[in-house]
Design a protein around this nucleic acid. Structure first.
Lengths: 230, 230
DNA sequence: GGCGGATGTCATAAATCGGTCATACTGCTG
DNA sequence: CAGCAGTATGACCGATTTATGACATCCGCC
């Protein structure tokens, strides 16, 4: 579950310590000292999570949070607020501004790491490395394996990501464009029809265990991963 | 998993208690009364874990922790902080330390032991001296020997470390970068492709006993040590 | 200083993937 | 039932990734 994390924190001491601990947990951390630098960074890269200190010189964490929540581009990025105060009022206010979670100093590295995991799970289930199991179809991100009813299934990198996305977002139709954004990544120049081809390859790969039917075509809309028939 | 533990604690009562309990659990304990003695000790020996009391006369636990974290030589050593419940919040406020874990007094010896174990496993499972045996492939860190189905296998130092890491982290994909970090060490300037070469050498070394298949390529992701086929 | 093993790098071969296209098929609409 | 838009399929080929063999360097040890 390696994630790119943007840390916005003015105290260099805490910055270093968090950086160390999060790196230890396998994450990629970029640290900036204030809201302005954070915004500058965000113009060029989209992290998977943002850790935001509550109190900062200049634009405060809460202001930055509000601003990010107002921008469609940054809206989907989970935000965790860091604060020294355990005040319930602040917590309410923090969550009010659109933060996904809130953690009070001091906290253990382990706690922070697990909260990051939780927040990722909620926002982007396919980012976590948890095993997904649906109807006898099992996908393990850690070992990068897929089994259908215990039988090993072979699928290429793209099909793997595609299936992973589908399994973590079941029972819902996704257009080709959405799939390209989610599975291929944004800003990729690829024909929409290419999705069809990979859907086919995925179906072929799932055929041996009879799980191909889980990938359903919704004419005029896109595709859906669903347990129900039809 | 016998570990060398450095205990830094000023209260002799607690010191004795922990020493007894940890020895009981099979660990080798060295106890010192303050940070200065701890540093002196660390010049000559590197323990596997450090237990650090939070509040101490002279240099506090938190200062020592910071200092150790800043030194590349001590950075990989797991640190567990011992803190008194309800300690003045302000002093510890937010200044999370870079410790791997912290435990609040009073705690049960059993809890401490299991946390030590957890921290060791998390940091470096391959650091332990336990013999690893998977599918007839046996690796003994102590004697630095590898056998496949009883047959001695020859492998170079790097291949040995690589195999050791894999055997202690099975069923999981590791990217070339991760392998470089874990097996070669951080901050090493080595081409990623070099990993391929050592993978090949490792496979060649394991060939005689037919264990080469345990080293599997996961295209686009990295390599995996796995008992399962495919 | 010479030797042998170990290590990292490179060039090249081999394997696989990914995107596109042409074509066949399907289901809806009038 | 003809036409049409959307989808499935099979083939192709360049691009990327991995495997392999060869080579230069380094280091400890005679």
């Amino acid at each position: 579950m390696a994630a790119n994390i943007l840390l916005v924190e003015d105290e260099t001491g805490i910055q270093e310590l968090l950086k160390f601990n999060l790196s230890q947990a396998g994450h990629q951390v970029t640290a900036v000292g204030d809201a302005e630098h954070a915004l500058a960074y965000l113009k060029n890269a989209l992290p998977d999570v943002i850790l935001l200190d509550w109190m900062m010189p200049g634009m405060s964490g809460i202001d930055l949070c509000r601003r990010l929540r107002g921008d469609e581009r940054y809206q989907p990025i989970p935000i965790i607020m860091l604060t020294a105060r355990g005040d319930e009022r602040d917590k309410i206010q923090g969550l009010d501004t659109g933060a996904d979670d809130y953690i009070t100093k001091p906290f253990s590295p382990r706690e922070l790491v697990s909260r990051i995991k939780a927040v990722l799970r909620r926002r982007a289930p396919q980012m976590t490395d948890e095993v997904v199991d649906v109807h006898g179809l099992k996908l393990d991100p850690a070992s990068h394996r897929v089994q259908g009813n215990g039988q090993a299934l072979e699928l290429g990198p793209t099909e793997f990501r595609l299936l992973h996305f589908f399994m973590t977002h079941p029972e819902r139709v996704y257009s080709r464009t959405q799939l390209l954004d989610q599975v291929w990544g944004d800003n990729v120049f690829v024909e929409e029809r290419t999705v069809d081809v990979h859907i086919r390859r995925l179906r072929l790969a799932l055929e041996p265990s009879g799980h191909a039917e889980l990938i359903q075509t919704v004419r005029g809309s896109g595709y859906r991963f669903s347990v129900e028939v039809g």
